[in-house]
Simulated scan of single mutants.
Amino acid sequence: MNEFIHGMDISSMDEVVRLGGKFYHKGQEKRLVDILKEYGVNYIRLRLWVDPYSEDGISYGAGGGDLQTTIAIVKEVKAAGLKYLLDFHYSDFWADPGKQIKPKAWKKYGDEELAKAVFAHTEDTLKLLKRKGIFPDMVQVGNEITNGLLWPDAKKPDYDNIARFVNRGIRGVRAVDEDIPIMLHLDHGHDWEMCCDWFDHFLERGEEFQVIGLSYYPVWNGELKGLIDNMNLLAKRYGKPIVVAEVAQPFTMEDYADYEGLKPEERKGAAAKPALLKRLEYPATEEGQVLFMRKFIEGIAAVENGLGAGYFYWEPAWLPVKGSSWATKEALMYMQDPGPCGNEWANQGLFDYDGNALPALEVIKSAYLR
């Protein structure tokens, strides 16, 4: 990969702005993508769900994540001269190690029907984007597929079916473009044994892909050394570029309940809770976030053989505006999740609760200019 990625996942942007969220650079209101570009961001990551609506047409929330919303954001991204990674979830809503729920329309499909659906969804989406002149610069086949995808049909340790469905996604990409980089993405970016086990199994069965993607969150995954050590080992073993596809560090533990305007029983509150702070190597302050980002970028850039290819900061601009939630009630029904709703992410962003750019963005700008 020619350019070190300083990336951001801004999948919630359209929803936040529509609900009144505003972003400021040194006191001046600007478009989010313009601010990010000014700070050296060169890549955007966007998640795509299959059908994130209830049968009555009500959005599942969390930024939308449907194709129409994604296209609207992509147009802004491309107009700003930035590249983007399209992240196929193969679900109607969140797909991660704790849930990989089949889309509603695919619920009764057998294995071969599912494989065909993965291929068709991937190919059709990319053909549409190509026709519109907004083709992605990288594609991610599945999201945090450590424990598989399209449960229960391809749940770890069923590596045969995991590879079967991932391969169909890869083929769907290759049916439209033979050269675009394809990323496969796992969580627990600090866990060498888990990553090695997964990629060894996949490479015995899988199609060619170009980029290893990892998630790393200090509040859950501990010290930065674990991530960097793992990246070095993965670089030696597989010889592929490695991107931290998701990362975030808290900048405060101040509550944002007043911004959400929800009753206590209606809001989930921050995912980065006080009980998790003991895992943080750097404090949950603006200064701590600056220190973390500096060491994080330096560590990736120093990975063996130049294979540390960059990162995507996850949802740096998910402001706690009224009405923007990680899930709606309809989404909770789809996931069979007890809830509650609300914003879980605002204290891990790169903008404060009022939308002001935080000092950690200066670290990115300095690293980009080097």
Rank of each mutant, 00 (worst) to 15 (best):
G299Y: 00
P340A: 15
L276V: 03
G288A: 05
A270N: 05
G288S: 04
W314R: 06
S325R: 14
P283R: 12
W318F: 12
G339T: 08
E315F: 08
P274L: 03
Y313C: 06
C341W: 04
A275M: 06
L332C: 04
G339H: 06
I297S: 06
I297V: 01
V303L: 04
S324R: 09
L280H: 06
A284V: 05
Y313I: 00
A331E: 03
L280V: 05
A271L: 11
G269R: 07
K268P: 08
K268F: 13
K295C: 12
E266S: 09
A270R: 13
S324H: 10
K278T: 05
L332N: 01
I297T: 05
A275N: 09
L332V: 02
G299S: 02
N305R: 11
D337W: 13
P274Y: 01
I297D: 03
W314P: 08
M293Y: 11
C341M: 15
K322P: 11
L332W: 00
E298G: 08
E287D: 09
G288L: 03
E281R: 03
A331S: 00
V321F: 07
R279L: 15
E281S: 09
P316M: 05
W318L: 12
K322I: 10
I297P: 04
P340F: 11
T285M: 09
G299L: 03
P316Q: 07
K295M: 11
L291Q: 14
G323A: 11
G306I: 02
P283D: 11
A284L: 03
V321N: 10
W314K: 02
E266K: 14
G269P: 05
W314M: 00
T285K: 07
Y313G: 13
P338D: 15
R267N: 15
F312W: 02
A302C: 05
E286G: 09
R267S: 15
P316H: 00
P274W: 01
G342A: 05
K322Q: 14
E286Y: 03
M293V: 08
L276W: 09
P340K: 12
A331V: 02
P320K: 04
A327T: 06
L319Q: 04
P274E: 00
T285H: 08
L277W: 05
W326S: 12
M333Q: 12
R267Y: 10
A317Y: 01
G323R: 08
G306P: 00
Q336K: 14
Q289T: 00
F296Q: 02
V303W: 05
L332P: 00
G342W: 04
T328S: 15
